[in-house]
Design a protein around this nucleic acid. Sequence first.
DNA 1: CGTATGCTCAAACGATCGTTTGAATCGCGT
DNA 2: ACGCGATTCAAACGATCGTTTGAGCATACG
Lengths: 203, 203
Amino acid sequence: MNSTSSTRDRILGTAEKMFAQRGFDGASLRQLTAAAGVNLAAVNYHFGSKEKLVEEVFRRRLDALNANRLAALHKLAGGEATLEQVLAAYIRPALELSHDGKGALFMRVLARAFAEHDDNLRRFLSENYGHVMRQFTAEFARLLPHLGKAELYWRIDLVTGALTHAMSGFGMIQRKGDVSEQEHLEQTVQHLIRFAAAGLSHP
Amino acid sequence: MNSTSSTRDRILGTAEKMFAQRGFDGASLRQLTAAAGVNLAAVNYHFGSKEKLVEEVFRRRLDALNANRLAALHKLAGGEATLEQVLAAYIRPALELSHDGKGALFMRVLARAFAEHDDNLRRFLSENYGHVMRQFTAEFARLLPHLGKAELYWRIDLVTGALTHAMSGFGMIQRKGDVSEQEHLEQTVQHLIRFAAAGLSHP
DNA sequence: CGTATGCTCAAACGATCGTTTGAATCGCGT
DNA sequence: ACGCGATTCAAACGATCGTTTGAGCATACG
């Protein structure tokens, strides 16, 4: 077995792009393998099925994304972090991912998956990355003690919707020529954090 | 030609349900017509094509929804309405639509369409209902003069994402047995309005 | 050298898709 | 009662889908 099959990676990269553009059903394996320059049967050989390929596209990005989120969260002083800091730990890794060309496509894939309400995919996400969301929710609960449990979950859901919506469009937003990429990213992070903080903590 | 063909309406109603459940590509005309109890060819006879059927599903709901939104907006005292009132004019009709059983499905269809970034559908929505969004944006600009144009658009986009996300899940949220439907709706409207107002108007 | 083993390839499989067709049936004005 | 347009119907069309197959090629190991 090859340790890093070029065919496997080309399929994954092309799949990410085409899933973002045409959706999971809309992107056929024939279009996908043709665009990747590999044989049609290579997908089933390397991944087993189209659905397993979808899961692998998610796993590759989300493993890194959620590891970064947890690392940022744990780096904060336990029990003393501010709401803005916790939000930054949640938002910045996602925005950094959506900032480079290929990661931006993945955020659109993610937004699509949210909207599709696909039960298999939701179970996959919950099983593999639910613990991350749980840790952040616990932090939010500590920082917003005046909110009831239902109210807190509700606001987090609203913030999640806003962020998903925003990041699925990020990267397509025209950036002014007089600010650097890093500056643009930082400004966007600050906007998102302030928006989320305002929505979460209002009385 | 029949003025209100039962076949036409059954197709539209079933299409809304199945598009919400399985997406536009995922719901086939064979499943759809079988569930509606009509012949397969009836879709192409009454609507011309599957894509025209999709547009008609949108048109039927959005005509009423946006008319209600504009009526609520114009009923406000011109130039003196508060941010919360304008938000209510925007949010309440959508939530009322998503409150009855069939409208709730439509909101999921709408959320799906947002995530799919389909160019044809976006053009259709922009051409037919763009003027509504423009009027609300003008009101927001009047009420939030301290925000730059770019900043305002950005926050409206975030609010739109949050609302779409929330309303696509609304109706699935379990309602406590001790509050009436009307009460539940009103509480939800108030939550959404306060969340949106906080996100829009924060410094 | 011979032969496993990992991988690629063209071709085909059955299933399902949206659409079209032409005949059968319905419903109403004259 | 008759005729005609509107509607429904079963059947078929070509296209495309995900998956499987078996032969061919490569590389490494005994």
